[in-house]
Every structure is written in C-alpha cells, then in structure tokens.
Design a protein around this nucleic acid. Sequence first.
RNA 1: GCGGAUAUGGUGUAAUUGGUAGCCACGUCAGACUUAGGAUCUGAUGCCUCGCGGCGUGGGGGUUCGAGUCCCUUUAUCCGCACCA
Length: 918
Amino acid sequence: MEYNFKELEAKWQRRWREEKTYHVEVDPSRPKYYVLDMFPYPSGAGLHVGHPLGYIASDIYSRYKRQCGFNVLHPMGYDAFGLPAEQYAIQTGQHPAVTTERNIARYREQLDKIGFSFDWDREVRTCDPEYYKWTQWAFLKMYDHYYCNDSQKARPVSELVEAFAEHGSEGLNAACTSEMHFTAEEWNGWDEAQREQVLQNYRLAYRADTTVNWCPQLGTVLANDEVKDGLSVRGGFPVEQKRMRQWLLRVTAYAQRMLDGLDELAWSDSLKEIQRNWIGRSVGAQAFFPIKGDDRKLEIFTTRPDTIFGVTFMVIAPEHEWLDSLTTDENRAAVEEYVAATKKRSERERIAETRRVSGVATGSYAINPFSGREIPIYVSDYVLAGYGTGAIMAVPAHDSRDYAFARHFGLEIIPVVEGGDIEKESYDAKSGRMINSGFLDGKDVKEAIAEMFAEIERRGIGKRLVNYRLRDAIFSRQRYWGEPFPVYYKDGTAHPLSEEQLPLELPPVDNFGPTAEGEPPLARAAGWHTAEGYPYELSTMPGFAGSSAYYLRYMDARNDKALVGREANEYWRSVDLYVGGIEHATGHLMYSRYWNMFLYDIGCVCEQEPFSKLVNQGMIQGRSNFVYRVVGTNTFVSAGLRGGYETQEIHVDVNIVRNDILDLDAFRAWRPEFADAEFILEEGKYVCGWAVEKMSKSMYNVVNPDYIVDTYGADTLRMYEMFLGPLEQSKPWDTNGIDGVHKFLRRFWRSFFDRSGAFAVTDEEPTPKELKTLHKTIKKVREDIENFSFNTSVAAFMICLNELGECRKRAVLEPLTALIAPFAPHIAEELWSMMGHTTSVCDAAYPVFDEQYLAESSFEYPVSVNGKLRFKREYPLSATPAEIQADVVTADEAQKWLDGKTPKKIIVVPGKIINIVI
RNA sequence: GCGGAUAUGGUGUAAUUGGUAGCCACGUCAGACUUAGGAUCUGAUGCCUCGCGGCGUGGGGGUUCGAGUCCCUUUAUCCGCACCA
C-alpha cells in the first residue's frame, strides 16, 4: 500500500474535527499542562512557511505531554485589532471587521492543513465584543485602583479617598505621577473635579498631559516599544515628541516586582536581560540644589553622589518646567531660540546628532551644597525631560557628556577621583581614591558613595532613591480599529461606565481616517455619547490591550460572568509553556506581566506571573534565488559561468527553482518579458545563485505552507521545519532537503508492509539488538523533546530506522509509532489504527514514555590511556566504579596499552570516562 | 559606548556536556534496477597526499593525560539598549 499522505491527512483532520479529539475540559483527576502560542495578527498576506515554526514546536510538545497523561490546554485565537486592517480600510473604505474576518478564515484554512491539536472551541478574537468586554473591564479596574508602595499591591481608590478625607496626603506611600502634599481640610474643601484631578495622580489607569511619541503619518500616539530609532515600528514613519493629554497605565508602579519576578521565570537569559534593561533600575540619590536669589531648590538625580564636590555647573532639559523662570532677561532670547530649534528637530534627527554638543546658559546660578560654589545653570537637550527629574548636576571630570559640554563652553573641570587624565578625557570609572572633596578625601569611591548617601540625608539635601528607565505606558491611540474606552466626559472630567454597561461597542463610521479637524475617527460616529448626551472618549486602546490577558480568557473562553471563572483559573493557573518570537520582549511580554500582576493583586487570578516557561523560536528568513542576465540581452548565464560576462542579478521565483536548478520552461512562462529568454547552461543545467534575505513578496522567496503540504504532506512539513536546525536559532527556509524527511516518512510507512504491499506487522519477538535500538531512540527522543531539541529528535528517528532495517515486529513498530505521533500525527494515527487500535494515538496510554523501557539500557564507557582514547567497553549502569576499575586494569586490552607497566593513576568517573595514566 | 548571542565540510547541522570531531540529512560522485524520470536501492564523500602520513571546529595564547566544549585575548556577524545622569 502506498503512503498516500493527501488522503490520509484529510481523513484524520476530518476525524479530529468531527470527534473533537482535542477538546479539553477542567479535570481535577488529571494533572494539567498549558501550552500557548503567541496568537497571530491575521494579515492579508496569509501564512508563509516561517509562521508555523513555533506552532509546530508547541504542538509537538502538547501532543507529547498529552501522551504522558497530562490534561493539555492548547488553544489558538487571533489578535485581530490593529493597524494594517485600518490602513487598508482608510484606503479602500472596506470595514476592518470585514477584511479581518476574511483574513481569519484564510489563516484558519492554512492552520488546519498542518494538523494542529488546538481546541478551537476556546478560540478568542480580540475584536469580538464578547472578548473586549473583559479588556474594558480590566481597564475600569485599573482606573479604580492605585498602587500602595507599603503593601506592594494595588488597592481600591475608595480607600485612598477615605484616607484623604481623614488625614490628607499625610503618611501616604503610593505610586504617583508627581508627589503631592495636602491636608484633610484642603481635600474636603475641594469640589469633585478638583478631587478627581488629584486622584488621577494615583490611579493605575489615568489621564495626564505628557510628552508622547506622536506619529503624524499614522495620526496617532505610540508607546515607547512601538518606536525604534525614531521611526514607528509599524510602517516606519517618523515620530516626534509632543505634549498631549492621554490615557496612561501606571506600569512603573510594578517596575520592581517585574524585575524581581524575572529571577524565577524559565525564560532565556537574553530575554530576561532585555527586560531588565528596559526596566533600567538604577540606585542613586535625589538631591536639591539651592538657587541663588530664589527660594526654590533644583531637584536632580545622580548615581554618583560621591562626585558632588566636582559639580561645576547644572543642566536642565529644554522641556523643564522651571526653564522659563530660571531664564534671566539677558539670556531669554538665546534660550527661546534654542528651545524652538530643539522642538523643531524630529526624534530621528535628535538621535542622529547624539554627539553634537549644544546648549545655552539660563543666566541663573545654583549653589553647590557641599563646596558652596556658585555654579551656572544651562539648558541642553542632552538632558532628557523623561528621565529622573529632567535636571542634572554636571561633573565634567567624571562624566564624558558633561566633559564634552564643559570643554565646549570653557567651564571648570575639577577632578575628585584619582585615576584619569582630565586633560584628555573624563574619568568615568567607579573606582579610585577621592581628592578635592573635603571629608571624603582619601576614601575609596564605593565607600564615598555610601557615605554620601548618609550625609545627604543627614543634611536634609535629599535622599537615597531608586530610579527606573521604564515609563508609564501611553494607552490611547487616535485610531478606529481598537477597543473603545468605557469612559465618558462630563464637564471635562472623565467618568467610567459601570460594569453592567460593558461592552461599550465600537460604533459604525463612514470613514476610517481622522476628521478634517484632526480628531480621531470616532468623532465621526453619530450618537457616540451616553443616553444623557455626554460624549464618549474618542481614542481607542492600543494593540497590546487585547493581547495582555488573552491567555486567561482561553481558560474559560465562553464565561459571560467573568474574565475567567475561579474554578477554571485555579485548575489551569498559568501558562506552563509559551512559545513565540523575541520581538515581543519589551512590548506584549512586559504589558502581560503587568496586567497579570494587577489582576493577581485584585484577587482575580491565582498566579502572579503569567508565563512560567518561555521559548523563543527563531525567525525563518527567505532563501532567494537569482538568475544572471547578460546586460543588454535577454540571455541568461548560469551562475558558474557568469565570470566572463557583465551580468545583472535578477530575483527569480523560488517556486520555479529546485535544488538551485532553474526550470527553464516555467521561467519562460513566469513573466512575458522572459518568454523568449536564451540560456547559457553548464552541463545542461541552469544553476541559480542564492542569498539569505527577509522572506517577502518583492524578493520572490515566499514559500507557502499550503504548497509544501500539497506536495509533501503536513507530516513532512512538520518534521522538516523541526529538522531545519535548533528551534531558537534564526535560519533561512530552504526547500532543498525536504526530500530527505519525506523519504524517511515513506520508508517508515513501508516498514509496516511486505514486498507485495500487504500490511504485515508480525507478533514476532524482537531481538535484543532491535530492542536496544528502540530503547535508545525512546530515551533520546524523550530527552530531546524536554529540551526543545526537535532537530536532533528527527535525526534520532532516521538513525533508528536505518538501524532497524526491515523490522516489521509489532513490539518495535507500535512504540515507535506512538513516539513519532507528536511529530507526524497523521501517519501515526493511520498506522496506529491499522495495528488494530480504535482510540486515537494521542490518547494512547501506551507505555512508550515509561521508565521501564530505559531501565534495560546500557552505556558505553570510553577508556583512554594517557589521554589517548583506546577503546570502549560496555557496562550496565549499575556497575560500581570499583568494578569498572578492576575490570579495566585486568582486561587484556588494557594490559596491551599498559605495556607491562603499573599504572600511576586510574581515573574513573561513573557514566563518563575511564582514564589510565601510566 | 554598554549588554547579550553566534562562529564546525560545498550546504543545514550533530557531538554521551571535557573523551575517537563531522552523527542525520541535502548536494556531489560511482554503481544497480528501470516504463529513461526530479522514482527506488547500494556504496563513497572534511582538506592535502598516488600512498605512507599530515592538517583540521574564525585567529592567537593558556589550563588538562585529553579542548569544538573551560580560561585569557583577538576578529567577524547578528540582536537588544543608548546623551538614562
């Protein structure tokens, strides 16, 4: 019987669907395991061969876990709100819901062909009102909570209100935008709007005037992780800094917890490091510098309080609130000109000119609280408004940026740490002996820092402070295709809807672009207000809103009473294995952790961290092919012969090239201008050149998984994607080589049949050699799956088959079928049922993964003499070092190498190595 | 500039984690069969050399009986952050 993968794969996919093979329910009698993929944004281009890589890996793992007896939750859904659908809508007038629906259908069709074990009954779509109801709900909860630094958790704002009424801001230790001080009398005297203004300073979801990343082309603001090198990640448009009133999430309140939580996560070190850098914790001192002729004090943050005696000037950011009041009349014109020039520069220009020194004196002076010197205050854009206090104390001798600034403006440079040569450059290292620093002289830098912290607090100049680079997340987008905010405005103050009013559904509009007045598209929606006529918020939520808690919704996807029911949540708890791309390191993976921690604080979920283990699959690049046209002709020269010609390199569709050999007829048919192409061949073939590039339409290197499934079958696609290389490594897709895997599956299939083609599995007893091969393979594949080393497990299957030769014994083939099922489920199901089983192989309570199979294995010990490896001997694992040692010394082989001498030393490491030193 | 990762045949990769480098495939070469095919099967295939033998894991040095693996140094590529005070 032939291996008819087409028929057989269709048959099993149909059966899995009809019998709901992969449907799961809460089952307290079995241990659970939750395997999650990062759900896709359904783009119009459909899936290419790189997209399913992670899905295949996670599918193998979930099928494996299921065969090990776990109740496996393995869901899938769509991150369906987003920019591309909206951009498309603006251009074509097609409603994003329509294109999204169409794209989802296409994605589903493509996914189904690959044979995933998803429980589609739990599908979620972020754009579905039944789903985004809970996104809005979480937002309302954040609005209703503040972060208490003492108890390190979110608490209801109502508690805050009570406390304010009783004793004002006294004793309050809460995460806030800026520190506020007021008495109970003041609080009680304020009206509702004034109180709300104060509360916005504390709410976890709040509205504030902040400097935002504004992208004019997209007509919206963006979060920090959505901007790279001054360009929008989506679309690559320039981004500028602008001050706007926006909704924000107080993620900074959770900075320390998110940092601490990383230690316990089974994530890659590089990913954890990216998050640590993004959070950017630094310990330093807050200090207030008196201003000459002013009773205010300028607040700065420094990590080098030891160098205060070396402060010779101060710098504030162009956006600093006090800039205007610190500027003297003589300097006003220059300062205003400087600020205007700074504002005009885009974020991108600013980054490009990073090393250019610029700035202007304000004319004001501060007083160094330690040296008592009068020091000038400058304004310069090398000081960022968004970090610390937007003002610094400058120590040119020990900070390269301050040094460059001081040199440029001829300012004084006072060394306070020994070690460098300040004539040439600043000495930034945190080591050396203090000089010119009064009571710190002679001390080591580390000592001096500690001492300075104490001294600053003792003198009341400031205090020790932890600062984070992490910024609160800007949460509004001036877009249509996103979740509406469940908020309306009354007298300019935001009011939340009640939970019963959710979901607040996205209204229809006739045009998806911004209005002529520059208002968001929702301004076009007729009736976008409450029954009383109060207008709703015009912005919508950003992309990360819907993806922040989707893993929770899968646990209990059809619950209309709660985001997730208690029973479901306490059973599934959190994601045990999360597979997805590393590009979400500072976006989704930060926001999800924040979101989950918040839900944990309010008692909605039972785990603090959402994703205990995370695997980042590498990206699949394209492998482009080229043909070489002799310039000025329509003649194409084969890659190996092009040396003698002046040629032009042209991308050719990889789908008409096989093993780098061009299909000449297909090429002539590919495009009209090549219809009469001539070829200069080498050995009768046209050999194409190749290069690794991004997989994209314009490079003609997109390989569609549907094509691979049609030609080779889903099982081949699955195994080949794994065989390509280590999961976490980025690698080019190369269809050359897929034959090897396909050939293996055909051989595997054939080993169940005799030469006449009849099913011929026998009940014969396997030989010890066959059993050894089987056990070795089981051990290897098990370990490989646990280590996500799927490429080596595919190799292990091939080796196994090579070693077994023509073995048709049930006792060997049955466990092997169960073992291969996670990788190639269709062929495994078919053979499994042919062997007489009536249940699915994925439910096989077959002891294929049992320890008993491993117990019989023996291990080889390499034996070396003087470091030169001489021979291998086999010992059972139970053998003691003493036994092995005695055996080696008395063995004839060993004697041969010992050459009659008595060994000086014998090293025996059980399970590893025996070394004899003569 | 700071931080992280990677480097092995013509290609993708593997190496009992310090123990015979190149498993498993692709490709190539040779052969068998053949309805002549981009099917199937068998064998060879790191480099140099007719051979003996020598050389080989980006380069240099070190530790070790023994290094692809550990340490130092250097180069190249990729990724993240970046006037972060």
